[in-house]
Simulated assay, not measured.
Amino acid sequence: MGWKLSDDLLPAKINEDYMMIDLDRGRYLSVNATGTVIIEAIVAGGGIDDAVAAVVKRFEIEEAEAREDVLAFVSWMREKGYLKDGAA
């Protein structure tokens, strides 16, 4: 499944991390290196497996650990309304 960032979220990459502005709520969000890799995979049109592969490659960790991190981050992003289904 493809994902996209919410239209209310304005991302900006600063050095190696993302800073995002939630335009609807007036909040700033800082995303760490792992979140940045996940967001980049998502913005490129990838799904969970693509994000997991990107995290494994970037941080040289086990796939199970990467999958846990990706699923937790995606779940949090969806819960907050920052991540939507690509078809939506």
Rank of each mutant, 00 (worst) to 15 (best):
M1A: 15
G2C: 10
G2S: 15
K4M: 15
K4S: 15
S6G: 03
S6M: 12
L9Q: 08
L9R: 04
L9T: 01
L10E: 08
L10A: 07
L10S: 12
P11W: 00
P11S: 06
A12N: 12
A12S: 13
K13C: 01
K13G: 05
K13H: 04
N15T: 09
N15K: 12
E16D: 07
D17W: 04
D17R: 10
Y18V: 09
Y18L: 03
Y18T: 09
M19I: 06
M19T: 00
M20N: 06
M20C: 11
D22T: 08
D22W: 00
L23E: 12
D24M: 13
D24I: 07
R25T: 11
R25D: 11
R25K: 15
G26E: 14
R27A: 11
R27Q: 11
Y28P: 14
Y28D: 13
L29P: 01
L29V: 12
L29G: 08
S30K: 13
N32H: 10
A33M: 04
T34Q: 11
T34C: 00
G35F: 13
T36F: 02
V37A: 14
V37H: 00
I38L: 04
I39L: 15
I39T: 14
I39N: 04
E40I: 02
E40N: 13
E40L: 09
A41W: 13
A41R: 03
A41K: 04
I42T: 02
I42H: 08
I42F: 00
V43G: 00
V43N: 02
V43I: 14
A44L: 07
A44I: 05
G45H: 04
G45T: 00
G45I: 05
G46T: 05
G46P: 10
G46R: 12
G47I: 13
G47Y: 04
I48M: 14
I48P: 11
D49L: 08
D49A: 06
D50T: 14
A51Y: 12
A51C: 02
V52H: 00
A53S: 14
A53H: 03
A53E: 06
V55E: 06
V55K: 04
V56E: 14
V56T: 10
V56Y: 08
V56G: 06
V56K: 04
V56N: 05
F59A: 06
E60F: 12
E60N: 15
I61C: 10
I61K: 11
E62D: 15
E62P: 11
E63P: 05
E63S: 10
E65R: 09
E65F: 01
E65W: 02
E65P: 01
A66E: 01
R67L: 12
R67W: 06
V70K: 01
A72W: 00
A72E: 08
F73P: 05
F73K: 03
F73D: 12
V74T: 02
S75N: 09
S75C: 02
S75Q: 07
W76R: 10
W76M: 09
M77W: 11
M77E: 03
M77H: 01
R78S: 12
R78W: 05
E79A: 11
E79W: 00
E79V: 01
K80W: 07
K80H: 06
G81F: 08
Y82E: 02
Y82F: 15
Y82H: 14
L83I: 05
L83Q: 02
L83H: 01
D85I: 06
G86Y: 09
G86N: 06
A87P: 00
A87F: 06
A87N: 09
A87C: 03
A87I: 07
A88Q: 05
A88S: 03
